[in-house]
Design a protein around this nucleic acid. Structure first.
Length: 238
DNA sequence: AGGCCGATCCTCT
DNA sequence: GAGGATCGGCCTA
């Protein structure tokens, strides 16, 4: 069951999203972010990025439904203060002392809803992303995977290993708390942006969230059905 | 001041 | 399917 490839065959481009896009209830914003493109411009001017194919919503403390899994659940702290700022910004935090994860702030300032990016379909800068992930060099990955890279048009399963998972995608793009936490994703001059290239997602898979201990029953994970780059459970009961 | 633990990933059985 | 790596933030004393 090979999934449909959503990548454009031409050179990837797109428009910056508007602030208002992120201002609504996070459970409404999250599924609409599927298909949008996360892009980092490196210091050397290279573009690294991919299409968002899986994400999770986390509810702010203002919400009627309590979400003890959210970092904002206990209110503002030095670590999570970006979550309580304006929408459309990057919240990057370290986890397990080894990896980073990235959220996009949503809703109005102070409400602290956010979206965790869980998987991208690699589109830009695949060679560099592989280096960032430490996947170049020893087989089995490099030899096989390199064939599918180079051009913009392929979400083969090997390439997905670059950005399939919240820690993996941050490592691939080279995202860190020190360099990227708090950046405005909608600023034309920002080194980290979200683009819309017009791709529409016809159907959205909704499941429980992955890897959390609290509020595990909430249906707040959203993914493109059967996309090869989606991580983890493929159904609500999985 | 100290302890606990996580929105993870990788390797090995 | 299980366990280890590894550390900053937050809670308790």
């Amino acid at each position: 069951m090979e999934a449909k490839i959503l990548s454009p065959s031409k050179k990837t481009s797109g428009r910056l999203l508007k602030r208002a896009f992120f201002r609504g209830p996070v459970e409404h914003v999250a599924p609409r972010l599927l298909g949008k493109i996360l892009v980092r411009r490196t210091e050397e001017g290279e573009l690294l990025g991919g299409r968002i194919v899986e994400l999770e919503a986390y509810l702010g403390p203002h919400n009627k439904t309590a979400d003890p899994a959210a970092h904002s659940h206990r209110g503002p702290t030095p670590r999570n203060q970006v979550l309580f700022g304006p929408p459309g910004h990057a919240y990057v935090y370290s986890i397990y002392g080894l990896y980073y994860c990235m959220n996009i702030t949503c809703e109005k300032t102070g409400q602290a809803g956010s979206v965790l990016l869980r998987a991208l379909e690699p589109l830009m800068g695949l060679e560099q992303m592989a280096r960032n992930r430490g996947l170049v060099g020893p087989p089995p990955f490099s030899q096989k995977a390199r064939k599918g890279w180079g051009r913009g048009g392929g979400a083969n399963k090997s390439a997905c290993r670059l950005t399939s998972g919240p820690g993996r995608l941050c490592q691939a793009l080279g995202l860190t708390r020190a360099a990227h936490n708090g950046l405005d994703l909608l600023d034309p001059d920002s080194p980290l942006q979200v683009w819309d290239d017009g791709v529409r997602i016809p159907r959205v898979l909704v499941t429980r969230r992955i890897g959390i201990r609290h509020a595990t029953e909430l249906p707040l994970r959203f993914a493109i059905p059967a996309h090869p780059c989606v991580s983890g459970a493929k159904s609500l009961t999985g």
